[in-house]
Nucleic acid binder design. Structure first.
Length: 236
DNA sequence: TGCCAGGCCGGGT
DNA sequence: ACCCGGCATGGC
């Protein structure tokens, strides 16, 4: 995954009439991409692995998720029937390294229930459903919130929906592009209003935001060398 | 050595 | 409608 998309960013069409906000978001993207290059998200072999990883990585470092994914693969259980047939206790033990293993075992099971009850255990069938409706169905699963649902839609289903996470809000707030009160939907709408609805662009953009957040938003000295530091001197 | 990771839920104000 | 504690491992 991540290599099958070679689409170019669509020009024109849905592009915003380039007002300030649109320019800023596209400009930020270009700078991040120029600086970091392609991020190759989502690191997974197939759509199911993406969906599982999306739940396992909730408030958790990705390296810990990798260990859990490895355990599941090792047992040959990283597929819908494999996980579906697992006891809660066994599943929890396998995903232990990813933390919150009891809640996550329940969340994975809840997702699998939806997958098997409504889509015959087939992700292709699941993603053939109309996106906004599927989003609502996913949000109905206990343990799947907006970011997790959108991550599944974008990275597993290639639905052009922008994934917002804590880094996204933090960085946009730091640069005075949003207020601290902005909620998930609001931030998402900003991106989707001013950017072309291209899954590949959304894919790369979110990954780049996570990258710049990890690399530069930890400590103050790093912040000055951040590829987005230029934003501090533009406004007012 | 404490703090934090690619959140979300449920209960209390 | 917010706010907060709980959930847990592993790396810096």
């Amino acid at each position: 995954m991540g290599k099958r998309n070679n689409r170019r960013i669509r020009s024109g069409k849905l592009a915003a009439p380039s007002p300030p906000a649109g320019n800023i978001l596209l400009d930020i993207y270009k700078r991040l991409f120029d600086y970091f290059g392609p991020q190759g998200w989502w690191p997974a072999d197939d759509a199911f692995e993406v969906a599982v990883g999306a739940i396992l990585t909730q408030n958790t470092a990705w390296r810990n998720v990798e260990k859990a994914i490895y355990n599941l693969k090792e047992e040959g259980l990283l597929n819908p029937p494999g996980l579906h047939g697992l006891s809660l206790e066994h599943l929890a033990s396998l995903i232990r390294p990813s933390g919150f293993y009891n809640v996550k075992a329940n969340r994975l099971k809840a997702f699998l229930d939806l997958l098997f009850n409504d889509y015959k255990g087939d992700l292709d069938i699941m993603f053939s459903e109309e996106a906004s409706r599927l989003r609502e169905r996913l949000l109905g699963v206990k343990g799947i919130g907006e970011e997790t649902a959108d991550s599944m839609l974008l990275y597993a289903g290639e639905v052009p929906i922008f994934v917002v996470d804590s880094y996204t809000k933090r960085i946009l707030f730091m640069h005075k592009i949003i207020s601290s009160a902005s909620d998930y939907r609001e931030v998402q709408q900003i991106f989707m209003k001013w950017l072309p609805h291209d899954p590949e662009l959304f894919n790369e953009y979110h990954a780049l935001i996570v990258k710049v957040g990890k690399d530069f938003c930890k400590k103050k000295p790093l912040c000055e060398r951040c590829p987005l530091s230029y934003l501090f001197s533009v406004d007012k």
